[in-house]
Each structure stands twice: as C-alpha cells, then as structure tokens.
Design a protein around this nucleic acid. Structure first.
Lengths: 175, 175
DNA sequence: CGTCACATGTAAGCTGTTACATGATTAG
DNA sequence: CTAATCATGTAACAGCTTACATGTGACG
C-alpha cells in the first residue's frame, strides 16, 4: 500500500510525470521508501484507473503529466491519519548482527567496526545534504519541506546512534 | 534471501521443527525479521531440497525435526561475511512523517506525540525483556546469545532516540 | 549523424500475507 | 469426549526486483 501513498504524496505537492517522480524517488524519498522505475509506472497507472490521480497534460515524448484528484487527497489524508496497515520493519543488517556469533570473534569485531564507519559516513553525507539544502539556516515550521527535514534529522540521529552502539558492542566484546 | 538465512541461523543453534522455529520467530526474531507460518514452512522445504538442512527425526504428529548440514553452515557464514545483497530498508512510519505537512498542524503534533509515547513504551518493554532474560547481570561476550542482546540494545537505543527526536520536532513545530 | 537524456511500458520470478484446509495428540 | 495445542501444508493475491523492449527529442 505504501508506494501508492508515497507517489500520491509527491503529487500532492505538484503535478509531475512518472519520469519526474522517479527522480524525486531517487533523491529525496529513497531513504524512506525506495521504488524502481517499473513499479512506479505501473503504480501510476493503477492510481489513474482508481481515479486517485489523472492525466492533466501530455507532453513531447508521450510524456504524461499527472495531477492528484480530490479522491486522491482524501485517500492520502486517511492514510496519514490512520497508521494501521503498516508493514513490519525488516533489517537485514540487524539479522546479520544477530548471527555474528557464528563467525570468528575478530571477524565479528571487524564487521561492527565497518558498521560504525559506514554510519559515520552516512552522518557526513546527510550533514552535507542538509547544508546544501538549507545553506545553514534553520527551517521554518511553515515551510513545505519542514517534515522532510525532520526525516533527514531522524536519519542523522539514527546513524549517530548506530555508530555509538556499534562501538559500545565492540567495547563489551573486548573484555 | 534473508528469511532463508534467519531460519538457517536458528537451526545452527540446535535442531528444531518448523513449529519450534515459528515460536522462536514470534519471540526473539520478530523484531529483526518477522515471518509467517506459511512462509516458514515452505522455506524449510526449499532449504531441505537444496540440501542446506535435513530431517533428522520424525516425531508424533508428522513432526519433522530439521538439522543444519555442512552446506547450510557454509552458506550461513558466507552470508554473514558478505553483506552485499541486503534489501533496502523501508519505513512506513517515516513515510508518514514525510507527509505530515498534509494534515492540520495540531494533528501532526498529536501524531508525533503518539510516536514518542509509543517509543517510550517500547523502551519499557525491551528493558523488562532484558531484565527477565539476564536477571540484571551483564552478558558475557562468550555467551551464545551475546549478539542477541546486542540487537536488543540496538532496539533500546533506537526507541530512545525516536522518542527524543519526536519531541525535538514538536519543539521546533511550537515556534 | 550519433549519443544522451527523456519517457514509458511489459514479463518473469521471488518474497511475503491472508485465508483456507487437514489431521494427530494431550489434558481435563 | 471435547477443546486446546501441536503440526504441516496449499492457494490466491499483492508487492517488489531484474531484465528486456521501444521510441522521441535535443544537443553538438
């Protein structure tokens, strides 16, 4: 259900073609809900059939620009409010940690170290991304992208936490 | 690929039937990689066909007890070491935050508040779980479940972070 | 004229969920 | 004897990935 919502959400902030949305998915939404080209296009067709979006313009290369309908907006708000049908979160990374007892201790240590470094890298990447988007200024709560930045902050905190955690596990391993 | 690994991982710590594994999934592994009954049974059959596990005993009600094979152990170690083919992480919860600009501000605040409370609840639940499993004592790195506890700690830190984050977003919203 | 970006679509296959279906054993 | 637990399986459907397939327009 969620890709449908993600697409609807992007269209709620302005009309766009599948191609446009695809790039937005690669950029801002990839961290929250990645989608492939194939999936996005077929989802757009389903949404159009269901009347949640509609083609509002046809451009050069068969380009179809979509616009959200009132029914689409209603569906979106219903979903944002409800928070029932969320699929469970799965993390292959944590599964791997769970099984780390199966490899030699030094390999386990190396793995945790790599996780910490990777998280550090993500913190740097997201910090730079934030910089480049805001230019260092604070984001106004009235700003349209306020919650986008809130999610970005979540990512920053998550990765900082992960780095700290990985190092704490290594420390306990070193007793 | 990952359910296959999760099942192999549990079998690596001792033989068990599908039914046994199912309960272990509901208990310890649900937070990392949930699985349904249906999926688990068919995965076990596939693993058996592939020679990664084998039936080592047949009990009362058609109960089949599985044991991991050498090939299974090899596959498991390969996967733990590799960390290439990880599926991307998706979070419906964060997607919802991303779209929170679409609902009235007070509803957004209420939602974030609910997220914080929920995270607090998880922290309590996991703290109690940890208590009940360790009896308050520290976990020895040599202990078989050391990494299980490491993952539990991750969950604790994650939820603590989430509660803090949600409250920080509310604060910024209140400007 | 060639290459790159634009632009959309289809098909096969795997993973995961829900629901249905069946039967054996044990405990009260 | 009857209800709960044990124990496994199948079928239909939705979501996602990979790969393939096709064609247009702009720029140099």
């Amino acid at each position: 259900m969620s890709l449908r919502i993600a697409a609807l959400g992007l269209l709620a902030e302005g009309s766009a073609s599948g191609y446009d949305l695809l790039k937005q998915f690669e950029k801002s939404m990839a961290n929250v809900w990645p989608a492939t080209q194939s999936q996005l296009y077929s989802e757009l067709n389903k949404l159009a059939v269901g009347g949640l979006i509609e083609v509002c313009a046809v451009g050069p290369r068969g380009r179809k620009e979509y616009r959200i309908t009132d029914a689409g907006r209603a569906e979106l708000q219903r979903w944002v409010a409800d928070r029932q049908d969320d699929p469970p979160v799965r993390s292959a990374g944590l599964l791997r940690v769970f099984l780390l007892g199966l490899v030699p201790p030094e390999q386990a240590r190396a793995h945790l170290h790599a996780m910490a470094e990777e998280a550090d890298g993500e913190v740097r990447r997201l910090t730079e991304l934030r910089e480049s988007l805001t230019g260092g200024r604070a984001v106004d709560p009235a700003d349209e992208s306020f919650f986008g930045f809130a999610v970005l902050d979540y990512g920053l905190r998550l990765n900082a936490m992960q780095a700290e955690w990985a190092r704490s596990v290594i420390d306990r391993l070193d007793d």
